[in-house]
Design a protein around this nucleic acid. Structure first.
Length: 461
RNA sequence: GUGGGUGUAGCUCAACCUGGUUAGAGCAUCUGACUGUGGAUCAGAGGGUUGCGGGUUCAAUUCCCGUCACCCACCCCA
């Protein structure tokens, strides 16, 4: 083939191939996460990669809306839509009728609303699938990435939120993170603060996102951003003392209660938070793993109650998990509300973080044994040994390479990270023996053929 | 959507600021030392239109402009 005919192999930005070595790491993390989900009684669910556009739009706020990957209409419908004289931003709705899923929460809500007779409440499901966002990629951010969601649908109990936190804690701890922090807040508290300060209710979300930056930009920064948003200084003056609140969660909530005493919703949020923390305090979750953060906000519009997010100090990679309660979202599809809560475990960032912290050992293959073929006359002996090993449950490979010298075969096993090599040549066949070579230790021994399985088991143990 | 940085061998980078022989190194790959045995060592080999296009110049990897790609930060988020 001529050089100019080659299509340059490229990847769309923000997407990745996962070669075997990376897949083995991912699988390890995913299997652990899955086993924790199942330990708490959750069953799997999958939904299509794309949904009808109307299912997704209007759920993620203005910013999220822009990041939805829309799919162009096809065939006659596209031709029809293209007949418009001019196109505006709104016309994307007419050119597109489908979109790639943006998260797993909205599809879950759609499912709940679609199968009221099949799904028994409370419904506990986990879902591990890719989602797509038309974002600009950067560290820890991709345009195609996997989310691992756990949710409980049909319970308004704070115990459900507590269980989500238990799961989050257990997963992060089991993965080997020692210093992580689950930040906890309540959307109702944020609403209460907004009410107390006299900010118009419609701007609550916008303002709480600014408050969320407290740690990052400090009080001065917040003041400045509020000014830019044309928030009156009267409001800011009322807000600043609230930003000062510190102490144990009891102290924080006590002080907050004074400020929010006239906000019915604010008091509700405080009560929920007290209840949630009372469970946490009595649980096995170490106190240093969680913290009340009055200004934690989540950009997604659909949260209504407790909200949470977990972070690690290093490496700096944003949040590893994020979730909360969304009691009104299912109602959009069903016509009546069903309470729900859950979280996303951000596996991409978890893997990136674990890689940086060297928490994921390099594994090149899962293969345990390579059976070499000495020469054409002995190949049947090799095949029989391979079959025997597989029957005993060992991951066993036979060498198929073009270069078939013993040195090439052992070199292949070495570079691929296969720990054991079986050699069976004319000598061994004559004596009913097998040479078993341990590439890790560099030792090898000649054993009788019927010792093989036990010996392999012993070395691999 | 806004701002910044970087593009040189398969990978990580050097040479660029201050233009001047055949653009180097490490790792990786291949060959041999090694006729039934990997890693280590030694000897050798292959691999480049310096992202692309244009400009300045006797001369451009080097300076200038454009363009594309990637990375980083902001916004927002996992």
């Amino acid at each position: 083939m001529k050089k100019e005919k080659i299509i340059k192999p490229t990847l769309p930005k923000g997407t990745r191939d996962f070669l075997p070595a990376q897949m083995l790491k991912r699988e390890k993390v995913l299997n652990l996460i899955k086993s924790v989900f199942e330990k708490f009684g959750y069953d799997p669910l999958e939904t299509p990669a794309f949904e009808n556009l109307e299912v997704l739009s209007g759920k993620y706020g203005e910013e999220g809306e822009r990041l939805i990957f829309k799919i162009l209409k096809r065939g006659e419908e596209l031709k029809e839509a293209l007949k418009q004289k001019s196109f505006s931003e709104e016309s994307t709705q007419q050119l597109s009728d489908l979109a790639l899923r943006y998260d797993l929460t909205v599809p879950l809500c759609r499912v709940i609303a679609m199968y009221p007779n099949e799904i028994k409440l409370p419904f506990k499901r986990y879902q591990i699938q890719p989602v797509w966002r038309a974002d600009r990629p950067q560290k820890g951010r991709y345009r195609e990435f996997y989310q691992c969601d756990v949710d409980i649908v049909g319970s308004s109990s704070i115990l459900a939120d507590f269980e989500i936190l238990q799961i989050t804690n257990e997963i992060l701890a089991q993965l080997g993170f020692t210093k992580f922090l689950i930040k906890i807040n309540n959307r109702k508290i944020l609403t209460g603060i907004v009410e107390y300060c006299g900010i118009e209710p419609g701007r609550g979300n916008e303002i709480s996102i600014i408050l969320d930056k407290l740690e990052k930009i400090g009080k001065g920064g917040i003041k400045k951003e509020l000014q830019e948003k044309k928030i009156s200084s009267k409001v800011t003056d009322k807000l600043l003392p609230v930003l000062e609140i510190q102490g144990s969660y009891q102290q924080i909530l006590e002080k907050l209660r004074n400020y929010l005493k006239d906000s019915k919703i604010g008091i509700e949020g405080i009560k929920e938070t007290e209840e949630l923390f009372s469970y946490l305090e009595k649980s096995e979750i170490p106190k240093e793993n969680y913290k009340l953060d009055l200004f934690l906000a989540r950009g997604l519009e659909y949260y209504t109650g407790p909200i949470f997010e977990s972070v690690v100090e290093s490496p700096p990679i944003g949040s590893l998990t994020g979730g909360g309660r969304y009691d009104k979202l299912i109602g959009i599809f069903l016509g009546r509300d069903i309470p729900a809560t859950g979280t996303t475990i951000g596996i991409e960032r978890i893997i990136d973080a674990m890689t940086e912290l060297s928490l994921l050992p390099e594994v090149k293959t899962k293969t345990e044994v390579l059976v070499t073929i000495f020469n054409p006359e002995t190949k049947l002996n090799s095949l029989q040994i391979a079959e025997k090993l597989r029957r005993s449950g060992f991951k066993t490979e036979i060498y198929f390479g073009e270069k078939d010298g013993l040195r090439d075969q052992i070199g292949y096993a070495n570079s691929k990270g296969i720990p054991l090599v079986i050699i069976i040549g004319p000598e061994e066949i004559k004596q009913n023996k097998i040479v078993i070579k341990n590439l890790k230790s560099g030792t090898q021994e000649s054993i009788s053929a019927d010792e093989l399985v036990d010996k392999v088991r012993e070395i691999l143990a």
